[in-house]
């Protein structure tokens, strides 16, 4: 354990935290000095106008992007230097705003692979896939949970768009994360149908800590316990939904804008 680990990140009730996390491209500051804490079991929403730096923040949490400065902690452990694969193995999983799936694999193939990766079985080349019955059962259970059972044997690219969004979540869940980052899980789904995605999220075990980016304020209000507002790469404010909804600054920069759009 590092001696300089800050007090807040050593707290056992905190699943994920950042310390002065900053990302700069040339003269453009995408994220600036973000201090953030995600308690264990949280349902936390990250909101903000387009270009506020939300996806950049997620990318630094998962290790896709290296921060210019600042640190990331998983359960108190400094993981800033860890690359993406290692952070996944430490319990962090994510979905992508734009589908990032395996179009030519079947639904079962995809989920099964994610499970095999988690169990470090995916480099095994002499034991047939079909003999991994425990993993196949687990994959089918997860697929059934997400209501994709009827499509288990079809290629992902032939799925309807909404089902593909569920596949994003299925792949993330297959790695049994302690921390789940959802980048606009219902992006592109017609407003009326997005609750299917969120009802899946609502059913997740309570000890999984969830951070999600979402634009639909109604969904945010229904599914989050806490909200962080990001504007221009900085944290504008953080609080419970009822506080945020009435905060005049938030209404000005964010709600005002979405009311016009």
């Amino acid at each position: 354990m590092r001696a300089d680990t800050s007090i807040l990140s050593a707290d056992a009730s905190i699943a994920l935290s950042t310390e002065r996390l900053t990302k700069v491209w040339g003269s453009f500051i995408a994220n600036s000095d973000i201090d953030f804490r995600l308690p264990v079991g949280a349902r936390h929403a990250l909101i903000g106008p387009n270009g506020a730096g939300k996806t950049t923040f997620i990318n630094m949490l998962t290790g896709v992007l290296a921060p210019t400065s600042g640190r990331v902690f998983i359960g108190g452990e400094d993981v800033t230097a860890d690359h993406q694969e290692r952070r996944v193995r430490k319990g962090i999983a994510r979905t992508f705003q734009i589908n990032n799936l395996f179009p030519g694999l079947t639904v079962l193939d995809s989920v099964l692979l994610a499970i095999l990766e988690r169990k470090n079985l995916a480099e095994n080349w002499f034991r047939p896939l079909k003999s991994h019955m425990a993993e196949i059962e687990e994959a089918m259970d997860l697929i059934t949970d997400l209501g994709l059972e009827a499509q288990a044997g079809v290629e992902v690219k032939t799925l309807a768009y909404g089902k593909q969004r569920l596949m994003e979540i299925a792949l993330a869940l297959a790695s049994r994360p302690r921390i789940l980052l959802l980048d606009e899980p219902a992006a592109g789904i017609p407003a009326g149908e997005s609750s299917e995605v969120f009802s899946v999220i609502a059913r997740l075990p309570s000890d999984v800590s969830i951070l999600f980016i979402e634009h639909d304020m109604d969904l945010v209000r229904r599914f989050s316990q806490r909200i962080t507002v990001l504007v221009g790469g900085k944290v504008l404010t953080e609080g419970a939904p009822e506080e945020i909804m009435v905060d005049p600054r938030v209404r000005e920069v964010y709600l005002g804008e979405s009311a016009h759009g």
Partner: peptide, 21 residues
């Protein structure tokens, strides 16, 4: 085998693989 499946997955969506660990 699982290894063969992971090769196909790399072909189909290499960018997702690190996110699976």
């Amino acid at each position: 085998s699982p290894f063969g499946l992971s090769l196909r997955a790399i072909r189909e969506g290499v960018s997702r693989m690190p996110a699976l660990g």
